[in-house]
Design a protein around this nucleic acid. Sequence first.
DNA 1: CGCGTAGTTGACACTATTCAATGTCTGTGG
DNA 2: CCACAGACATTGAATAGTGTCAACTACGCG
Lengths: 226, 226
Amino acid sequence: MQVVPAVSFEASRYPSNARAARAVGGKMNTIALMGAPMRFSRNAEIYGEDEPAEYLYQVVSGAVRTYKVLEDGRRQICAFYLPGDIFGFEAGDSHMASAEAIGETHVLVVKRIAIMSRADHEKDLARQLWDATAQELRRFQEHMLLLIKSAEERVAGFLVEMAHRAAKTVSVELPMSRQDIADYLGLTIETVSRTFTQLEHSGLIALPTSRRVELRNYNALRQLSA
Amino acid sequence: MQVVPAVSFEASRYPSNARAARAVGGKMNTIALMGAPMRFSRNAEIYGEDEPAEYLYQVVSGAVRTYKVLEDGRRQICAFYLPGDIFGFEAGDSHMASAEAIGETHVLVVKRIAIMSRADHEKDLARQLWDATAQELRRFQEHMLLLIKSAEERVAGFLVEMAHRAAKTVSVELPMSRQDIADYLGLTIETVSRTFTQLEHSGLIALPTSRRVELRNYNALRQLSA
DNA sequence: CGCGTAGTTGACACTATTCAATGTCTGTGG
DNA sequence: CCACAGACATTGAATAGTGTCAACTACGCG
């Protein structure tokens, strides 16, 4: 990311940011309140791997993917971030992965150093940062568990995860492409596609469009993802 | 873990612990200095998944595995911890995985709550905890990248990782069984075994015993793990 | 010496990948 | 409104890589 937002973390005083914070899944939290709004268009890079982690982000709308590219060109998507999620917050001081907006995406941005120094004397904030890190670790671990399963289990697990995070159990709108899903699950795009249709034929899901998934049997999906 | 060590974190005053800390790879660090020594025998449980994370551990000698068991019985090893490594330090307040001693293992134990509260006013210590967490996140991410590769790449990557962590480039003594390696890499024991002999036949490694691996061509191994 | 555990090897089955073709959606310009 | 291009997604057939099951070997320990 090259452009630095003009609004500093003191922007918490402005009502516009408070509104934006409240817009994020209805959850109020300190990090959001301090953020400056920023916009990224489809496939725009938010930050690159190994860049110093200057900012911390919270998704307001849209979606973000973080990824690593291996020497042979394969891409592994490390995580998807949906509205309300905080990302770019590394325990170290440089980014472990690159981040891109999946579609048109609005985020709140805040200087990491400001948060960190404030956390030194604000116990709540420090707690929030640890929670975010714990969440990140749990997700990584869940993701690791996904990668050792069969294609069907991975896709089912992915759908359950997405439904859970969107707090839905009937239908989900996937913001990401099949290629993104494939790179997240460590499968090929063909296998992902085949597995979707397989799940559809067995009546567990319906696919009105390729991005919209109706969960016809949430419990069976959960069980399938083992 | 059922048994609580008699020695509390104030044990830092006792020279015996300071000696133990220094014994850990020659590195001095605050966490180690505060630890009470404790011993676990082969396959002994150190803590279980979802147990409250009361203690924090540092390996002095031996090795530890953390793992999760899926409903169908498959076991995924999340991490191996070698002498000097800190484990059991969860960002949340319960353990994300179970931990077992792989062989006869000596650790230093300290109450997590003591460390955490001390970290509130000791900046160095807080920094150390963040560093440990960052390390953990990096390892998880590396592990994730391993899991999307071919069997040969995974095993090569595993050997390079072990060599690196033991600070060796010629030969490594693996403390864990083939089954442990298989569960770490998301492969079967047979595939791991076959891959070892394959690497031996292609001259990249030698296997004087099944646990001792001589790296005959470290750079080729690195390259192979892509 | 014999037993049990850990590790290796072989034959075969099965799952996911590869390569190629076809189908679908969306936005643009006629 | 329709036709078209380009990106995205689905489907099929052949292949490669792991898993599975079973037999066999090597090692450590009573």
